[in-house]
């Protein structure tokens, strides 16, 4: 569960990236975050991840106000969310398996748990066959699946994706979105910032529209033509 209450974010440069945002994404929900480039989508996501601090207002994640969360607690907050980016962010010198296992090392999972969990998520994203390959041997879509597997492997309660299909061709983009939908159907909250108009239109999910930092529309359905 993610809740924004009167959240403002003004960067040091004076840019007001988010203005008085109020919304609530329930547990198990699938929500798109759409808007033109520079409208504040990434800032909103960084606020959820506590990579940026709100200038005012409060952000509640899984029932906990993170506004005054101590810096040394932030890693534990992030373990409740799996993050996916447009540029995949895989480690080039590690195999597919190692890239995913890496996320488990970090949370100090047992080797036994790692050996069981990694093949399971790799099969979930359809990459069981490629676990020994390196990222540069994979297509963009496959790389994004690895990133998705890594985001999922520690069983987060939500997946946060910032333009996950931005670097992919339409067909591959659909595969990734369908995968995110499958993950959502298994009970994980999914928040996706995106540009992909036709996908948003067809998937018929909740759409939060942001324009120049203001949330101008928040309803189920398609892309609004006004932006």
């Amino acid at each position: 569960m993610i809740e924004f209450r009167n959240v403002n974010k003004t960067y040091n440069t004076g840019t007001e990236a988010v203005k008085n945002a109020n919304f609530r994404i329930e547990k198990g929900e699938f929500a798109f975050l759409i808007g033109a480039s520079g409208s504040g989508k990434s800032t909103l996501i960084k606020l959820i991840l506590k990579e940026e601090e709100p200038s005012s207002g409060s952000i509640i994640i899984n029932g906990k106000d993170t506004t005054f969360l101590k810096q040394n607690r932030v890693p534990y907050l992030r373990r409740s969310m799996g993050v996916v980016f447009q540029d995949f962010r895989l480690l080039p010198d590690k195999t597919v398996y190692e890239n995913v296992a890496f996320a488990m090392y970090i949370v100090k999972a047992t080797p036994k748990h790692i050996r069981r969990q990694v093949p399971m998520v790799l099969s979930l994203v359809g990459l069981s066959e490629k676990s020994k390959m390196y990222p540069n041997e994979l297509s963009g879509g496959e790389q994004q699946r690895v990133a998705l597997a890594r985001a999922l492997v520690n069983n987060p309660s939500m997946i946060i994706a910032d333009e996950p299909t931005g670097n992919l061709d339409p067909d591959t983009a659909w595969e990734i979105m369908n995968l995110l939908n499958d993950i959502n159907l298994r009970g994980t909250t999914v928040v996706v910032a995106t540009h992909a108009k036709d996908i948003v239109d067809k998937m018929n999910k909740r759409v939060i529209t942001i324009k120049d930092g203001n949330i101008i529309r928040d309803e189920k359905g398609g892309y609004d033509s006004e932006i």
Binding site: Y76, R89, F102, V107
Partner: peptide, 16 residues
């Protein structure tokens, strides 16, 4: 630094 930022997103503590 890329690896470090990935570690931070996955929830690695600073000491780790």
């Amino acid at each position: 630094r890329k690896e470090i930022s990935i570690m931070k997103y996955v929830g690695a503590t600073n000491s780790f």
